[in-house]
């Protein structure tokens, strides 16, 4: 993969984005030659995670968090990824959107949500409930890469990270395994001839890159606002097809590469004190060695 800076002045869209927020760079990422069809098959990863609103509790054995009886839902960044894929379909850039989830039996509910949002079909790679927390980004990336091969996909859209383990690695690893270009932290995706122009959220501004297809894109928070799955969409989604398989069926070994030694709550903040006046405050600060 080569990064080649391009001449910025040639790109009116560059200037437009520049006006919004900070520094803008323009790069072109080359990938292997590939003739692109007009409409893409898009694979989207959807992970079942503990709902963002739930207060996380550490398990008594200090090796994980409590998941039993806790509300789960789709990882919010994956919702953004599905929404973007469905929008690509509605713009007729994509021809088919396939939602993929690696997880326990209940991961099917997450896939159903994706189907209700507009995905055409689902693939459930079943991971036994006990092994779910030991599933690593590399395993998921290998599964995704295999499915890309099987499904002859042209584009993979993933959430930039899952809110449970915050790894932020699956998209990058998937791209590496496939030897495809990657456009991570996308806040805007536009299709040009056989390429995607992706605006990325980087430190201090936005970066616009062009990636040749096929490619892997990871969705950042500002890419879109996901739609709500309404009753009619949920009803039709109940009938959409979900293929079931195991990681072993894809030849992927999911034995863990690392071991969790300890999971701890964040340190509890000590309570403050109230002081009568400024003099007391100064004295207290002097005593504490702060001033």
């Amino acid at each position: 993969m080569k990064l080649k800076p391009e001449v910025r002045q040639d790109r009116p869209s560059t200037r437009r984005v520049q006006g919004i927020r900070g520094r803008v760079q323009l790069f072109s990422i080359k990938s292997s030659p590939f003739t692109i069809t007009m409409s893409l098959r898009v694979l989207v990863g959807v992970k079942r995670v503990i709902d963002y609103a739930v207060k996380i509790r550490v398990r008594p054995d200090k090796l994980g968090v409590v998941t039993d009886g806790v509300k789960h839902s789709m990882n919010p960044f994956d919702e953004i990824a599905i929404e973007e894929a469905v929008r690509l379909k509605e713009k007729k850039i994509a021809k088919e959107v396939v939602a993929i989830s690696c997880g326990p039996t209940q991961a099917q509910e997450t896939i159903r949500t994706a189907l209700a949002m507009g995905a055409d079909r689902g693939i459930h790679v079943e991971i036994p409930a006990k092994e779910v927390e030991k599933l690593e980004p590399l395993h998921v990336a290998k599964i995704m890469a295999k499915l890309v091969e099987q499904e002859k996909a042209d584009l993979v859209v993933l959430g930039k990270q899952a809110i449970d383990d915050d790894s932020n690695a699956t998209a990058q690893m998937t791209a590496a395994l496939l030897d495809w270009p990657q456009a991570t932290f996308a806040s805007k995706i536009e299709k040009t001839d056989g390429e995607l122009q992706v605006t990325r959220e980087v430190d201090g501004g936005l970066e616009i890159i062009k990636v040749k297809l096929p490619a892997v894109v990871s969705a950042d928070l500002r890419l879109n606002e996901p739609r709500y799955a309404t009753l009619p969409n949920i009803m039709k989604a109940k009938k959409k097809k979900i293929a079931k398989m195991k990681a072993a069926d894809l030849g992927v070994d999911t034995s863990p590469h690392f071991e969790v030694l300890d999971v701890a709550d964040p340190p509890v903040r000590e309570a403050g004190i109230k002081v009568e006046d400024v003099d007391t405050l100064v004295t207290k600060l002097k005593d504490a060695g702060r001033i």
């Binding site: 379909k89 509605e90 007729k92 959107v97």
Partner: peptide, 9 residues
């Protein structure tokens, strides 16, 4: 109609 039919314009 699009609202009740995500993905098919």
């Amino acid at each position: 109609t699009l609202l009740e039919n995500s993905g098919h314009p």
